[in-house]
Design a protein around this nucleic acid. Structure first.
Length: 856
RNA sequence: GCCCAGGUGGCGGAAUCGGUAGACGCAGCGGACUUAAAAUCCGCUGUCCGUAAGGACGUGCGGGUUCAAGUCCCGCCCUGGGCACCA
C-alpha cells in the first residue's frame, strides 16, 4: 500500500508503484518459460533533445494496455523499448557544440528513459537496445556483410539526391517534392559514388507476402504502389541509318498500331547516335537545359510538355511505317527502358504532346459510345489490320506473340521500386565494415581462404583517380568496426563525410585475416596478411539500425550471435506492432527486406517480421491543427501528469476517440476522466481510509447488477482485443455509475471491476487491489471470464414500431411469442393512436428486439 | 488528375449483423449539501411546434432499395492522407 489515505492521492500512489514495479522487475519477460508468449512492440523512439512529446504516450499507452491485458490473460509478455539513437539532430548538435554524439545520445536516452518510467509503462528495461552502442551496431554491420556476400550490396556512381543543407545524399523515399523529408531543405541531383542495396531483387516477394499480413489496408496499398509492379511488353524498333534498335516498354501492346512517334529521355544513351546533323544544335541545347532543370521543374511545374525532334525515324515493327523519334523530358530515364512508343489516341501524356507538336493521332481502340480521345480504357481493336475486332486483352497477347515470332519483343515486367541508396556522408552512423584494396591484394585475401563464405560471387569494385579499388569485407569476428574519434564533426566539404579527415583511420595497413589495422603512416607490421587499405568514408543511414531491432530484443546481451535460435523459436516475431503511419513505406519496407534476407540465410523462422500492424492516429493540437512549435499548440505530457496523474493522462488519451483516428487534444475533458477515477476510488475506499463499508462479502447482488457486470466483462474483453479503448472506458464508466446507485457491492464484483480497469489505469488499480486485501500485483491477477448465465436477463425490452417509427416499448419475457408481443403492442396508447382507422397489412417481428406494424 | 479513409448535437465521440440515432464524456442550465465557496450528489440538455401528453424534422447534399437506412445501391460536395509524367 502506498498510503492509507482516504483520498485519491495519485502523487503518492503513482511513484510508489512505479518504484515497486522497478524493484520487483514486475514486467521482465520470463526466460525459459512454458507459457504462451505475446510480443507487443512499439516503434522505438529517436531520443531527441526535447524529450517526450504528447505523441509518444499516445501510441505507447495503447501498446501498454495490450501488454498488461495479455499478462492478465496468462501470457508471457515481451514488451521492450530501445533507442534509435543515430540521427542527424544529434550530429548537428555535435557540429555546433563539439560534444561527442555518443555522449549526447546517452544523456538524452537517460532523460527519455526517466520520462517513460514516470509514465508507468510496463516496459522490460532489462532488454533495452541502443543502435549506437557498438555491441548493437556490430550486428548491424554483420547483417550488412550478409547482404554483401549475397551480392545484395554494391557500389555505383549514380545521380543521387544531394541535400546541401544536410551535406548528405538521401534515398528516393526521403525526398518529397524536391525537398528533404527531414527539415524540408531543397535537394539537387548529383552524381556520386554510393552504396546501394539490391532491394529490387526482392520486389516480387515484398509484394506477394503482403497478402499474408494483418496490416491496415491503406498501408498495404501504399507498399504495393511503391513497389509498382506492372506487366507489359518490350518492343524493339529498328532505327533508320543506325545498327542499334530502340527498345521501349509498354503496358499496352494492344495499342502498338497506334504508335505515331517515339520518345527517348534526354539522358538516353542513344540520344547522340540518333540525332541527325541538322538537329544537332537543337537537341544538344535541349538535353543541356533538361539536365539543368531540377526535378521539381521537370515534374510539378511542367504544365507544358517540351521536346525536340531528333531528325531520325524508327521503323514500326509490324507495319514498317516510318515513325519520328523525339527527345522529351516527360519520359524518365530511370523507368523501363527510358524510351517509349507514343500512342496519342490512348495515352493522356502522349496526346498532350502530340497536340502541342502537331503529331498524328490514330485511334486503334474503340471505346464506349461518347468517349472522346484520348481514351485510355480497354475496348475492341480497330485500324489494326489483322488484329481488328480483338479485345484489348486478346490484342495484348496476340501482338506480344507476333513481336516474339520475329524476335522484336517479348513480355516484360517492370517495377517502380528502385534499389535502396544506402550510404550517407555523415559521421553519426554505422561505419561500413569494408576495406578498399587493390585487385591484387583482394585476390590474395580471397585466395587465403580466411574470409570463407563472406566473399561475394562477383567482387564489388569502383574506379577513381587512384585506379581500381575492390571491396574486401572485414572479418566478421573483428566487428564492431568502431567509429573513430574526429576533431570536427563537420562534413569534409567534398561531398564526403568527416571520416575523410581522419587519415590515421582512413589510410591503413590492414590485416585481412584479423581485421587489425595501423595507420598507413606508420611502418607496415610484419606478417603476410598485412595489406594497404583505405576505409569507406560513407556511413549507413539511420534506417539500418531500425531494420532489425525487434530481433535483438529477444536476446539483447548475446555476444556470440545477433540473436540465439532458441530465443527466436520461442518468441518468433512480434504479435502486434504499433507505430505511426509515416513509416508505412520507409522503415516497414526496409525492415521486411532485411528480414527476408535473414530468412533466406535460415536465421529467422518467419518470412515476415510484423504479422499484425496498427497505426495510432496523429494527435492534433486543441485548435484542431497539427502540433508545431510555431503554432504553439503543443501539450507537455509531464505537465498533465503533474496536474492529474499518469492514470488520468492514459485514460484521457485513450478516451479521446479511436486510437487509429486523427483527433484533437481536449484539455477540458480531462477533468471528467479525473472525476471518474475519483468515483472509482470512493466506491472502494471509505471516508475513513478503510474499505468502503458498502463492500461486503455476502452482498446479494441484483440480477441487474450481475448482468451489467458480465456484460461489462464481455464488452471490455472484446474492446481490448480490438484495441477499442475508448468504448472499453465508457463501459467501465457505465458500470461504476451503476455500482454507485447500489446500497451494497460484493467483494468479488469490486475486485472484478479493479481487474477490468487495471490495464487502462494501472497505478490506482494496484493500490485498490492491495487495499482489497489482494497480493501480489494486479498485473498477474487472472482476467475475469464471462458467465453467460448471468449475461441475459429473463426480461427483454421490445420496441414497438408503426410503419417503421418508434411508438413505445415494453419489457416482456424474452421467450414471448409474436402473438403475445402483438397483443401487448396493441394496448400501447401511442400505437393505438397511430393505427386508428387503418388496416394492419403486415407485422414484422424480430424476437427480443422489435415488432413493426405496417398499417395504412 | 488518380487511389484510400472520413463527414453524426455547442464539442470529442457511440451505434459489432439493416431494427429505439446521439451511449459515455465535455461544455451549458437548474437543484441539493454549505454561513459561503470548492468538492460531491441529483435532474435537464439534437432542432422546431406544444403548458403538457405528444407530434414533426434530423447522421454532408440529391435520388433509390426496404416493413425499417447513420448502416446497402447510384450520382454529387467537402475534409484529411497517399501517389503523381512510372508509359
Amino acid at each position: 500500500m502506498a498510503s492509507n489515505s482516504p483520498d485519491y492521492r495519485f502523487t503518492e500512489i503513482e511513484p510508489a508503484w512505479q518504484k515497486r514495479w522497478e524493484d520487483e522487475k514486475t514486467f521482465a519477460a520470463f526466460k525459459g518459460c512454458s507459457k504462451d508468449k505475446y510480443y507487443v512492440l512499439d516503434m522505438f523512439p529517436y531520443p531527441s533533445g526535447n524529450g517526450l512529446h504528447i505523441g509518444h504516450p499516445l501510441g505507447y499507452t495503447g501498446s501498454d494496455i495490450v501488454a498488461r491485458y495479455q499478462r492478465a490473460k496468462g501470457k508471457n509478455v515481451l514488451h521492450p523499448i530501445g533507442w534509435d539513437a543515430f540521427g542527424l539532430p544529434t550530429e548537428q548538435y555535435a557540429i555546433k557544440t563539439g560534444a561527442h554524439p555518443r555522449k549526447t545520445s546517452i544523456e538524452r536516452i537517460n532523460y527519455f528513459r526517466n520520462q517513460l518510467k514516470s509514465l508507468g509503462f510496463s516496459f522490460d528495461y532489462d532488454r533495452e537496445v541502443d543502435t549506437t552502442d557498438p555491441n548493437y551496431y556490430r550486428w548491424t554491420q554483420w547483417i550488412f556483410l550478409l547482404l554483401f556476400k549475397r551480392g545484395l550490396a554494391y557500389v555505383d556512381k549514380r545521380p543521387v539526391w544531394w541535400c546541401e543543407e544536410l551535406a548528405t545524399v538521401l534515398a528516393n523515399e526521403e525526398v518529397i517534392d524536391g525537398h528533404s523529408e527531414r527539415g524540408n531543405h531543397p535537394v539537387v541531383r548529383r552524381s556520386l559514388r554510393q552504396w546501394v542495396l539490391k532491394i529490387t531483387a526482392y520486389a516480387d516477394r515484398l509484394l506477394d507476402d503482403l497478402e499474408g499480413v494483418n496490416w491496415p489496408a491503406s498501408t498495404k496499398k501504399m507498399q504495393q504502389e511503391w513497389i509498382g509492379k506492372s506487366k507489359g511488353a518490350t518492343a524493339r524498333f529498328a532505327v533508320e541509318g543506325i545498327d542499334e534498335a530502340l527498345e521501349i516498354y509498354t503496358t499496352r501492346p494492344d495499342t502498338l498500331m497506334g504508335a505515331t512517334y517515339m520518345v527517348v529521355a534526354p539522358e538516353h544513351p542513344l540520344v547522340e547516335t540518333i540525332t541527325s546533323e541538322g538537329q544537332q544544335k537543337e537537341v544538344t541545347s535541349y538535353v543541356e537545359s533538361a539536365a539543368a532543370k531540377s526535378d521539381l521543374e521537370r515534374t510539378d511545374l511542367a504544365k507544358e510538355k517540351t521536346g525536340v525532334f531528333s531528325g531520325t525515324y524508327a521503323i514500326h515493327p509490324l507495319t514498317g511505317n516510318r515513325v519520328p523519334i523525339w527527345v522529351a523530358d516527360y519520359v524518365l530515364i530511370s523507368y523501363g527502358t527510358g524510351a517509349i512508343m507514343a500512342v496519342p489516341a490512348h495515352d493522356d501524356r502522349d496526346f498532350e504532346f502530340a497536340q502541342q507538336f502537331d503529331l498524328p493521332i490514330v485511334q486503334v481502340i474503340d471505346g464506349p459510345e461518347g468517349e472522346s480521345l484520348p481514351y485510355t480504357g480497354d475496348g475492341k481493336l480497330m485500324n489494326s489490320g489483322e488484329f481488328d475486332g480483338l479485345s484489348s486483352k486478346e490484342g495484348i497477347a496476340r501482338i506480344t506473340k507476333k513481336l516474339g515470332q520475329s524476335d522484336l519483343g517479348e513480355e516484360s515486367v517492370q517495377y517502380k521500386l528502385r534499389d535502396w541508396l544506402f550510404s550517407r556522408q555523415r559521421y553519426w552512423g554505422e561505419p561500413f565494415p569494408i576495406a578498399w584494396v587493390t585487385q591484387e591484394d583482394y585476390q590474395r585475401a580471397v585466395d587465403s581462404g580466411t574470409l570463407g563464405e563472406w566473399i561475394p560471387e562477383n567482387p564489388v569494385s569502383y574506379t577513381d583517380e587512384n585506379g581500381e579499388r575492390y571491396a574486401l569485407p572485414v572479418p566478421p569476428s573483428s566487428l564492431p568496426l568502431r567509429l573513430p574519434e574526429v576533431e570536427s564533426y563537420k562534413p569534409a566539404g567534398t561531398g564526403e563525410s568527416p571520416l575523410k579527415n581522419v587519415s590515421d583511420w582512413l589510410e591503413i595497413w590492414y590485416n585481412y585475416e584479423t581485421g587489425e589495422f595501423v595507420p598507413a603512416s606508420s611502418e607496415k607490421p610484419s606478417g603476410d596478411n598485412w595489406i594497404r587499405a583505405t576505409r569507406e568514408t560513407n556511413t549507413m543511414p539511420q534506417w539500418a539500425g531500425s531494420c532489425w531491432y525487434y530481433l535483438r530484443y529477444l536476446d539483447p546481451d548475446n555476444a556470440e550471435e545477433f540473436v540465439s535460435q532458441e530465443s527466436l523459436s520461442y518468441w518468433e516475431a512480434p504479435d502486434l506492432y504499433i507505430g505511426g503511419q509515416e513509416h508505412a513505406v520507409l522503415h516497414l519496407l526496409y525492415s521486411r527486406f532485411w528480414h527476408k534476407v535473414l530468412y533466406d540465410e535460415s536465421l529467422v523462422p518467419t518470412k515476415e517480421p510484423f504479422t499484425k500492424l496498427f497505426h495510432q492516429g496523429m494527435l492534433l493540437g486543441e485548435d484542431g491543427k497539427k502540433i508545431s512549435k510555431s503554432a504553439g499548440n503543443g501539450v507537455d505530457p509531464v505537465e498533465v501528469v503533474n496536474e492529474y496523474g499518469v492514470d488520468t493522462l492514459r485514460l484521457h488519451l485513450m478516451f479521446l476517440g479511436p486510437l487509429e483516428a486523427r483527433k484533437p487534444w481536449n484539455s477540458k475533458g480531462i477533468g471528467g476522466i479525473n472525476r471518474f477515477l475519483g468515483r472509482v476510488w470512493r466506491e472502494i475506499i471509505g471516508k475513513d481510509g478503510n474499505l468502503n463499508p458498502k463492500i461486503c462479502d455476502d452482498a446479494n447482488e441484483s440480477e441487474e447488477t450481475l448482468s451489467l457486470l458480465h456484460q461489462s466483462i464481455q464488452k471490455v474483453t472484446q474492446d481490448l482485443d480490438r484495441l477499442n479503448f475508448n468504448t472499453a472506458i465508457s463501459q467501465l464508466m457505465i458500470l461504476v455509475n451503476h455500482l454507485q446507485t447500489c446500497e451494497t457491492v460484493s467483494q468479488s464484483t469490486a475486485k472484478c471491476f479493479v481487474k477490468l480497469l487495471a490495464p487502462l489505469a494501472p497505478h490506482i488499480c494496484e493500490e485498490l487491489w492491495e487495499r482489497l486485501g489482494e497480493t501480489p500485483s494486479v498485473c498477474y491477477a487472472p482476467w475475469p471470464t464471462v458467465d453467460a448465465s448471468k449475461l441475459d436477463r429473463s426480461d427483454v425490452k421490445i420496441v414497438f414500431q408503426v410503419n417503421g417509427k418508434f411508438r413505445g416499448q415494453a419489457s416482456i419475457s424474452k421467450i414471448a411469442t409474436e402473438d403475445e408481443v402483438l397483443a401487448l403492442a396493441k394496448e400501447e396508447p401511442r400505437v393505438i393512436a397511430q393505427i386508428k382507422g387503418k388496416t394492419i397489412r403486415k407485422v414484422i417481428f424480430v424476437p427480443g428486439k422489435i415488432i413493426n406494424l405496417v398499417a395504412n
